[in-house]
Amino acid sequence: MIASIKEAWEIDPVLNEGLQLFLDMRNQLVHGLTTSDRCDIKTDWGQRELIVFLMLFDIVSKTIKSAFKSSYFASIEFGIEHFGISSDIPADLIDYIREQDKSLFVSTFTPIDGAI
Rank of each mutant, 00 (worst) to 15 (best):
D44R: 09
I51L: 12
F78C: 03
E49S: 07
M1D: 14
D101Y: 07
S87K: 08
L29D: 07
I2V: 13
S103D: 12
E49M: 07
E17D: 13
S87T: 13
D113A: 04
A3W: 04
L54V: 02
Q20A: 14
D37E: 04
I94A: 02
K6P: 14
S107R: 07
F57D: 04
R98E: 04
F83Q: 02
F22R: 07
Y72E: 12
I5D: 15
M55D: 06
D101C: 13
F73N: 02
L54A: 05
I80M: 06
T110P: 13
D95N: 08
A74K: 13
S4V: 08
R48D: 14
D44N: 14
S4C: 08
P90C: 03
Q47I: 00
Q100I: 06
I51H: 14
I85S: 15
E81C: 06
N27G: 04
D12L: 03
V52M: 10
I76Y: 12
E17A: 12
N27V: 00
K69F: 06
D95G: 04
I80A: 11
V14C: 13
E7C: 04
S71Q: 09
P13N: 02
D92R: 13
I94S: 07
I97W: 11
F83T: 02
L33W: 02
E7T: 05
L33Y: 01
W45N: 09
L104Y: 10
V106D: 12
A3Y: 07
P13E: 00
C39N: 11
G79D: 13
S75T: 15
K6Y: 15
A115M: 00
D40F: 03
I64S: 07
S70K: 01
F53A: 00
A91T: 07
K62V: 00
T43K: 15
F83P: 02
I94Q: 01
L54S: 09
K6G: 12
K102H: 12
